[in-house]
Design a protein around this nucleic acid. Sequence first.
DNA 1: GGTGGAAAAGGACATTTGACCATAATTTGC
DNA 2: GCAAATTATGGTCAAATGTCCTTTTCCACC
Lengths: 191, 191
Amino acid sequence: MDEFELYLRAHTHLDNGDMDQIRSLAIPKTLRRNEFLLHEGEICRYKIFISKGLLRTFGTAADGSEHILQFAPEHSWTLDVESYDRQQPARYNIAAIENSEVLLWPKADFDKLLATIPSLQSFAQQLISRNIYNSGRRILTALSATPEEKYQEFIHSSPDLLARLPLHMIAAYLGISIKTLTRIRQAQLRR
Amino acid sequence: MDEFELYLRAHTHLDNGDMDQIRSLAIPKTLRRNEFLLHEGEICRYKIFISKGLLRTFGTAADGSEHILQFAPEHSWTLDVESYDRQQPARYNIAAIENSEVLLWPKADFDKLLATIPSLQSFAQQLISRNIYNSGRRILTALSATPEEKYQEFIHSSPDLLARLPLHMIAAYLGISIKTLTRIRQAQLRR
DNA sequence: GGTGGAAAAGGACATTTGACCATAATTTGC
DNA sequence: GCAAATTATGGTCAAATGTCCTTTTCCACC
């Protein structure tokens, strides 16, 4: 039994038949560090499950700087929702931070699965809900927190990621400069 | 035919029977300027449709400052999703900016409606999707845009709201100080 | 295991932003 | 229509943050 099945069993009550069906439509893919799975402007054709590794979703600003919307470690899902839903050009890029293994479901196939497996649908709903809750919090801290508070919140909520990410990506995720991040960390050492 | 029915007709293909059923479970309520519909810590019991007026959803920071997550003008919906879904204490407050008229659906009732009216369900899905798309953009600009860019984006995307909102609320929405906002506006006048 | 490249840290400086204050203008509710 | 309260502007200052730069450290890959 592989990563994906273990994940499904842990988070759903899907029966074996359903699992097989879901699995049968997945396209496995290996990604090397820094390899892109989606470039902005392309259409996001797949729902993506990360079996191993770590991905990031990010947008590029006018000046070329990158801002990270989401980190997707193993056992999580990712995609450009807007592009995927409407099959229109993506706003964001998705790329691997570590060498990764992912499973891809073409939208048409996944839609079929959703239609035929009710408990998959409700599971998908849960994921969407969680996404919304997190977005709310993310917006609020982006608006109200100081760089230091943002960093604290990050290491508190994702200590695991902290160890795996280069600092400049954390900065790009928090919306602060690498310089500020370095300063914060220095200040903490001195305590 | 009232505001709500006009709205439903414009945005869905629900038939008259469905409309009546949906309407029959709504609780109408009048809100005075500054009146709260939900205090953080309370449970969000209703799905809220705004017939007239303007509401805001906001969180309060440790120092007592308020940060606005969303403005909900007439013909839109609002709620604290996380609190509503799980019937747990809310993180956010919802209050009226203008004297308003709203319709409230208790969760149990609305769930019943969703179960019996499939096209209401798909309509609700659409609203959720839009919410997600908007959140993504909001996060990205919160991370990457300068105060001036944020303001420009706001007046471009919501010129209608600009006229109805006190500036300090726009500042609270953009995550900048009222001082900065004033400065930006002065700079624009001088051009 | 060595080397080239990326990542982190550090220094110097300019700029932006916010806090705090006072003041002017506007709005609201009676 | 008036008084009180809210809202907007403005000034001054200190602090925080970003940019540009160099230097050092670390890491990946051959």
